[in-house]
Design a protein around this nucleic acid. Sequence first.
DNA 1: GTCTATACGTCGATAGAC
DNA 2: GTCTATCGACGTATAGAC
Lengths: 199, 199
Amino acid sequence: MARKSGSNGEKTAKQLREAATVLFAKNGYAAVSMRQIAREVGVQAGALYLYTADKQTLLFDLMDQHMQDLLQAWEGRTTPHAIAPIDQLECFVRFHIRFHLPRADEVFISYMELRNLNPENSKVIQTARSKYEDILHKILRDGQADGTFKFVDTRVATFALIAMLTGMNTWYRDEGRLSLDMVEEIYLDLVMSAAGTKR
Amino acid sequence: MARKSGSNGEKTAKQLREAATVLFAKNGYAAVSMRQIAREVGVQAGALYLYTADKQTLLFDLMDQHMQDLLQAWEGRTTPHAIAPIDQLECFVRFHIRFHLPRADEVFISYMELRNLNPENSKVIQTARSKYEDILHKILRDGQADGTFKFVDTRVATFALIAMLTGMNTWYRDEGRLSLDMVEEIYLDLVMSAAGTKR
DNA sequence: GTCTATACGTCGATAGAC
DNA sequence: GTCTATCGACGTATAGAC
């Protein structure tokens, strides 16, 4: 008997996250008002504060959830963990593309709205991002150590490859001329070539 | 005798552009107020409207000037224009890095604030961006045609390489462990490797 | 050319009825 | 759980004095 009749709090909470994700990605955190979000959810602005402490916390929670999902999805991947660097790199590229592409809004927010987080929240997100970069960096170092890869600098290569892969989100469209499978192969070829190796 | 004594409009106009560039890059267009900009310039908010029609026009002018500078700088480059694709690609990579790196704020704004331009202004900037992408795309197609490059898809490669190169702006710091010259060589190696060719 | 003053709207967030 | 009403602050932009 904990819940009153007619209540639908869980549904509203979910709608809030979804509406905020779409609006923040489209217009930017600072340009979106709580009233706009409330209108999208179908409640009054005041009602949103039942589900989030304030606007800043709402943004942080979206970004934090995204980064946690990303790291957990990598940990929970089904491909074998103990494989050769070249196979790890292929695995990472495919994972990155397939994780990021269907989450265009979340990715956009996580990369663009760091500056609108307060310092402590910003630090949390940047730490999570570093963890993700470290995953790729370790793969590159391992492959460099056994002679598979031929990077001039693995740290720079880490940044360069992630930027290259994530950039796909800015142009890829489902209805475009290339299927997801094709794009995946194209980027995989670019990465492997850049690494100085071939599949 | 056209100018009254004590006037310094040209200086104020320049300060306005510079203050807006720094503040928009740091906090985002929507999060920055005209009052903030005015404070930085050292005048009252109302005085800014002597130098810009409104806030939207101010943002557009900054972005438009940046894109025009970029395209004109490429046109005015001193290296020979009629050279082999492999040399053109090297030239483009070095140009891109050396143009973008000292303009971190302008680049950031031009890539992040498109969504805050009204539709017609947005179209102008996107057209200029397409022109720049077409420069690289033509180089890649030429090299592909004569067998120098081995891309699976030159259109995707264009996006991928530009994203990779521009991503440098997010991590490079003058006081970091790598000099500009070193980073330039590192990225050049990545690009040439990705192209399936070597210098 | 720059100022003060201000119009007028919207903001985030809260209080209290239902 | 959601509503209406509202607070106090701040937003862009303009008018008119100097």
